[in-house]
Design a protein around this nucleic acid. Structure first.
Lengths: 338, 338
DNA sequence: CCAACTACTGTGCACGTTCACAGCGCGGTT
DNA sequence: AACCGCGCTGTGAACGTGCACAGTAGTTGG
């Protein structure tokens, strides 16, 4: 990244000051809030900005304000999931939009491998960004602790198991969402309700299973519980396992839409009709839910509110406020699969 | 983004120099290449860096080098497509990885609406980034011209219609890829081969249709051609239209896997078997191709090579080299749908 | 033995901005 | 008339780094 730089000399604040017939200080004041600037000077500055085409140099500004004016979006998931599961794209897109509103760019970084984690960690410690949006479902990733130690504001997406109260987060109310779905399945007259969970080291894996157990109580036999990894293939494998262990099941609550799509395929291959023989409920209400056949009954995660809260919580922390948490309500969306 | 900043005073190059017993200049040299630095000094500096925990301040560096040391990834597609079509995630992920190799962070920006475009344009003109990776399929977006005028290095993904030769780009060889597929369908004994194209203002829309026509010649009757918009719903609508106009078709070449997935659903609903009654070929070889039933025969785009070339072309331009283009070969991947 | 060269080192300046401070004129109060 | 406060303005310093330059010591060659 070194080499001959293009010799396009951009106008500086000096040029604007000269063109407007005022000093640098006045230009700076006029542009940042306009406090204590006479109307005449303000107008002259704005005009000079227009004629010179001046845009403030972000590096110089950062240097003096000690602010990067940017934020990192760090993804610690295996990259396969990034483009298989639409959830990540939605989160990423949402955060980008939300940050754009306040003119803060988003830097995308990954931390899947050891090398990447080191690089990302060092990069963030260098002060390139003012805060971190951390999308990492599974616990036990040392990155979170590294970030916390470095003192940089962090907001996690989903409850950071083992760090509640220490690090800010925004999350859907997984547990009550799961309850909604299982109660719905019951109301459809199902009695052998199985579940495909997320990984047990993720908040979604734990909480959605807890919600399932809340409703079923003693009916939640081990035969009816299979663990998935949030991937489509994982959903297929878990469904196959359930069918072999409990061939008489008449409903499945799957902890993500993507896994549910996999489960649908396996049910189809086994000759079972959905929802006549087996009702299937998903979780997320991602774009997948409406593209399966039959369309998926699912629990809607309020992604837009989640991203909005994540950004808000992060900006608040950057302003110096202590970390907080936002738990957002979920909603049952009934379609053809139940 | 203003407010009380955390008072964690990071060590500067002065602190390192003091700790190592040398001057700032020597520290700077030791860290940037290590040219003309005595072994003793080098070691002392490295040790001092370790003990002080020094990391260079990126803003200060950018200010003096006139380099942002970062790159923007700009997406001008309607946002719906970002999380419906895995292609974008793959491109994004690939570019992030490739740039991480050379320690260049990626800023994600969107330019769907007029407001966003203005914001992004202004942001880039401010010098926040050294170059732009532009993912915009449809032509006629003024952003490309704005960027070109501002003199910043740009690499487009896919041939930028109307700007060939002026702006660098990396693209798959769409036309010959389409030929491969249509020839394959013919070799399967199909004679009424329809196609669902991409939008006519995109290179993929134009080139893949051209490849289709190359092979079919006079057999490419208007009845057999429907236009899609690269969305799943668009694929469904186009397939429905084709079935009503040419009920006797025995094959469809669809210009993207996502649209092909939509087409499969419609064919299924119409009672046709794939591939017995109708063979279906896709384009992209995205993750969708293996998740449909039946799995999709498709044309593989070498996404990894595309992203690698995009990054290389961009870095080259930043170094001062003129814009160039990379056309990469495609490959037929035969699965169950043909 | 001196000059020239090499290898290394330290110092001042510049990058472009914001901020604190001091200065100015003006109107109103004591 | 002297003072004060207020609104506005200009100026110097600082942010932390890289780079050009000058300088030093040690080595080599004539």
């Amino acid at each position: 990244m070194t080499g001959n730089r293009a010799p396009r000399n951009r106008p500086t604040i000096h040029d604007v000051a000269a063109a407007a017939g005022v000093s640098r200080g006045t230009v700076s004041r006029a542009l940042n809030g306009g406090r204590n600037v006479s109307p005449a000077a303000l107008e002259a500055v704005l005009k000079a900005v227009r004629t010179t085409g001046y845009v403030a140099n972000p590096a110089a500004r950062s240097l003096v304000t000690q602010r990067a004016h940017s934020v990192a979006f760090v993804l610690t998931e295996p990259q396969q999931r990034l483009f298989e599961d639409p959830n990540f794209s939605i989160l990423l897109q949402g955060c980008t939009q939300e940050l754009a509103e306040v003119d803060v760019p988003l830097l995308l970084m990954t931390a899947n491998t050891e090398v990447e984690r080191k690089r990302t960690s060092r990069f963030i410690a260098a002060g390139h960004v003012d805060g971190v949006l951390l999308v990492s479902s599974h616990t036990g990733n040392p990155l979170l602790e590294e970030l916390r130690d470095s003192g940089i504001p962090v907001v996690a997406c989903g409850k950071p198991i083992g760090h509640e109260g220490q690090v800010a987060y925004a999350a859907a109310d997984d547990r009550s969402g799961a309850r909604l779905m299982v109660e719905h399945l019951r109301s459809r007259g199902r009695h052998r309700i199985a579940t495909i969970t997320g990984p047990p080291d993720t908040p979604g894996g734990v909480e959605r299973l807890a919600g399932y157990r809340d409703v079923l109580g003693a009916d939640a036999s081990p035969d009816l519980i299979a663990h998935g990894d949030y991937s489509r293939a994982g959903g297929e494998a878990a469904m196959a396992s359930l069918l072999s262990r409990a061939p008489d099941l008449d409903a499945v609550f799957v902890a993500s839409d993507l896994m549910a799509a996999g489960a649908l395929n396996v049910l189809h291959d086994s000759g079972r009709r959905v929802p006549e023989d087996v009702a299937v409920g998903g979780f997320d209400d991602s774009s997948i839910a409406t593209s399966t056949r039959p369309a998926l009954t699912t629990v809607r995660q309020p992604f837009q509110r989640i991203t909005r809260e994540m950004v808000r919580l992060l900006l608040d922390q950057i302003q110096g406020e202590p970390p907080a948490a936002s738990i957002l309500p979920t909603e049952l969306v009934v379609r053809a699969s139940t």
